[in-house]
């Protein structure tokens, strides 16, 4: 896997959002310099608690936002500042599946049109070719082609997420960004949708950027895992390494907090308890400093960079 080429790379990606106008204008520091790579064919899991910037990272990588700073590369091409009209190749190569399938589909359009729309926009396929492709896609995600005449609200959450996956697959993309694709679903259907994603990945050689706040789900899905905290990557390593030998204090706390099924294997639960600092304040020093049990003076002023401590294991901590 290590030999695989890099398909997505971010270098020091910064994303700010302006809030309010004129008076009392404030800046949300959603991403504060994110550097990571996604390799072709792998699943990179992205974990972190709510508000840490996972969705923002996904959208910035897809160029749904204009990044405030840093760079985004897709397949070696710098797409950070490309105008929309030059992003066609990116739009064809990278698609997204959102958390809430009800919100990610226009309720006024029939499912067939929803799945067909990317083909209408991006290809010169004829009507008939498109319709055949839609039927094929719906079959691929385990739905009956007759679904195309119905509307999103006539389906269950799991089925709707299958429709969203069919839409994402329509253009035969190389990367699919899954932004918490099962968080809004019943537990009973979560694993079905996850397994569908895995089998589609195998069948089409897809690269997945898989976002979740559920560590268990990420472990099940991912080859490598990036742990995010307050707009930065705290640790990035192979899935096994993250779960078995975490190096960053935040990752350690997260892993320790996973309820173990084996009572004898309970590790010391150093539950970190503090508040997550507000993203409205410009971060100085280590983002995790206010909750870190082992912090030192240096952490207050100096931001730890992501360093490779072992082959393929990057950690952003002065003491790791």
């Amino acid at each position: 896997m290590n030999e695989a080429r890099t398909i997505i790379e971010t270098r020091g990606l910064v994303q700010h959002f302006a809030q309010g106008r004129f008076f009392g204008r404030s800046v949300v520091h959603a991403l504060n310099g994110v550097s990571l790579t996604v390799r072709e064919g792998e699943t990179l899991g992205l974990v972190g608690e709510t508000g840490c910037g996972k969705s923002t990272l996904a959208r910035a990588v897809m160029r749904l936002y204009n990044p405030t700073g840093g760079q985004v590369f897709f397949d070696g091409i710098d797409v950070t500042r490309l105008p929309e009209r030059k992003l066609k190749f990116l739009r064809r190569s990278m698609q997204i599946v959102f958390q809430d399938p009800a919100d990610s589909m226009n309720p006024r359009l029939p499912v067939g049109y929803i799945v067909e729309e990317p083909l209408i926009i991006q290809t010169r396929m004829t009507d008939r070719e498109r319709r055949e492709r839609v039927a094929e896609l719906l079959t691929d995600v385990g739905l009956d082609p007759s679904a195309s005449m119905r509307y999103p609200h006539e389906f269950s959450g799991g089925q709707r997420q299958r429709i969203a996956i069919a839409r994402a697959l329509a253009l035969k993309p190389r990367v699919i960004v899954c932004d918490e694709p099962v968080s809004a679903l019943d537990v009973s259907v979560q694993s079905q949708v996850l397994n569908l994603l895995l089998s589609l990945q195998k069948a089409h050689g897809l690269t997945l950027l898989f976002i979740s706040h559920a560590l268990g789900v990420v472990r099940h899905m991912s080859d490598r895992v990036a742990v995010m905290y307050l707009g930065t990557v705290a640790e990035l390593a192979d899935s096994k390494a993250i779960y078995e030998s975490p190096r960053h204090p935040y990752t350690k706390a997260l892993i320790a907090a996973i309820p173990s099924t084996d009572p004898t294997a309970r590790k010391d639960r150093r539950q970190y308890s503090g508040e997550v600092p507000s993203p409205l304040v410009k971060p100085v020093g280590c983002p995790f400093k206010s909750n870190c049990p082992i912090k030192v003076a240096r952490c207050e002023t100096e931001k730890p960079e992501l360093r490779e401590l072992a082959p393929g294991h990057q950690v952003a901590c002065h003491l790791a």
Partner: peptide
């Protein structure tokens, strides 16, 4: 701000569309 608009943008839909 809703996801279906983001989804449309992600597939390269024009402003007009």
């Amino acid at each position: 701000e809703r996801d279906y608009i983001l989804a449309a943008r992600a597939m390269g839909a024009s402003t007009l569309r």
